[in-house]
Design a protein around this nucleic acid. Structure first.
Lengths: 175, 175, 175, 175
DNA sequence: AATGAATGAGGATTCATTCAT
DNA sequence: GATGAATGAATCCTCATTCAT
């Protein structure tokens, strides 16, 4: 599953590039140039392409990372999870740009599925506990999550507005 | 505020370009080339730039048009209006791409404000009639509308999914 | 068959580019950069790509041109034709590089076939007149022609050497 | 003239690289990447450059090898030798690409001269025996050989066509 | 000696925009 | 006003070569 372990410096560079790319794309959107990512990471352009043979691969890797982050945090509560994802999205421009996009599906199927699984588990629990209506389905919640995340990101919502919108959404899910 | 009246053929071309651009950008996103818009409109590239000195201007004009369309249709019901906007968004890729974007703010302040006004009026009525809770504020509804529209567009929701998501949203607004 | 006639300046540029490309590729081989072609032609790089959307297209066009030149000159004699082709090849590095190459088959089928036709006609005549043995086949002559042309080009033969080699070749064809 | 004796593994690697390079360049032409040669040889890219400081050097070494092969085989007959060279060329794409090229003259003067010597000897014998006309000169034969080899390679001649072309060439040399 | 990561110049191609016709 | 050719900066990507490990 994993190829041979990278040399220390290579691993360091990979991380730097990923960080830089996260920032750059968060600021300028996915249209930002790979050159700028390289500059921000403090490496030559060739190094970026050695680690991520294609711009798509780079974007995919970022998305994968973020999704993994979101999924692995282990919230016990659907609402808390929902809130966290939306908040994170607001900080990562790309994520949302990419989440539903055609182009970038390279190697993110797993992480995306994981997100769905996490959400599914939390939704089931929420129904049992009675904080969410029984007839609410997973795809609806996922769609609502994606939509809200996108809205928060692209709309530049204030923290206050975001909380109020989330309150409305949660009210819609409640019995 | 308005420039000199256009020649008949110029006015015709302007309309054609706007139509073509609407289609092209709806299909390919805002990254589609101006050249393709010109081709679809059946005019030369120079003509496009004569009418819209910048690609941004063209995008702005489309957005303005669409917003005007949405605003002027005169729905009597907040929910109907909400539904219509979301449905329209799903068909116009750009609209949503642009609605919250920094770049394209050229000349759309008016139309955006108009949309807010329309929504405000419908919201007030809904509160009076009692279909929406009294404490719900306009900016929340607008944010929710934008988010749902974006979700519908970029997520490629089916009509069925869209309806179910809207039901959840409306439930959140209801008393 | 032919698209709309080009504007005067466009036609002039197309010719310039073709000339420049002929020179550049003749000197440096097909690996020479399109940028250099543009520079030599005195146009911007974009202009080259407007006329020839791909480097391959440019190479193909050169080949086509040269083949057309060779074919249309109307030699009455197989040996004269053979000599002329070989001599021309020595001056056009690319031609030979391309003549048998896989990549560049875009739109040259016609011209190549024409060359074969011309050669076929001259061969038939030569057999009738008795300057070439009856059992010699067209594909052999074509192969010999290509080979000699390539040799002359890449080997950098002197005019004297070329003539002596041609004499040997012609001796091989004679009864 | 010769550097210090190589370590056993170094000598082994040199051979492997040369083999791999022969294959790769034969398949893809001289434009193939050094990286691929390294991969095929099962060594790291650095190792290739340690043995052959420049791509040109690598190409030169291959050529040298092949020429040595051809020269040392010891044919007793000019025609047999000629045939063997042409046949070999058809299998080694680079050889012919390189034989007359400017770039690659590093250290091949010797081998090329050796080829000339071999050919010269066979030609002299052939004249004595009377299978080749007395006035045929060495440079002509060498030129013809190179040309035919190139033709065979780049033209992708079938074995049958190759034989027929060789027959024509030999006829041209015969009294 | 070998490894393989990093470098960075170079090259093909695209596209918003300008301007001569 | 319309046309469409020309411009050239910007972008993605490749690959020979260097150098730290």
């Amino acid at each position: 599953m994993s190829s041979k372990p990278l040399r220390a410096d290579a691993r360091r560079n990979r991380a730097r590039i990923l960080d830089a790319a996260g920032e750059v794309f968060a600021e300028r959107g996915a249209a930002a140039s790979t050159e700028e990512v390289a500059a921000r990471a403090g490496v030559a352009i060739g190094t970026v392409f050695r680690h991520f043979p294609t711009k798509q691969d780079l974007l995919g890797a970022i998305l994968k990372d973020l999704l993994a982050d979101l999924t692995s945090a282990g919230d016990a509560d659907l609402f808390a999870f929902f809130t966290r994802v939306v908040t994170a999205a607001a900080e990562k421009k790309v994520v949302v740009e990419l989440l539903a996009q055609e182009g970038v599906t390279v190697g993110v199927e797993g992480p995306v599925a994981a997100l769905g699984d996490t959400l599914g588990g939390l939704l089931a629990t929420a129904k049992e506990v009675g904080t969410v209506r029984a007839e609410v389905r997973l795809d609806e919640v996922l769609a609502l999550l994606t939509a809200t995340a996108q809205g928060a990101l692209r709309g530049g919502w204030s923290a206050d507005l975001r909380d109020r919108v989330l309150a409305l959404v949660f009210a819609g899910l409640a019995p």
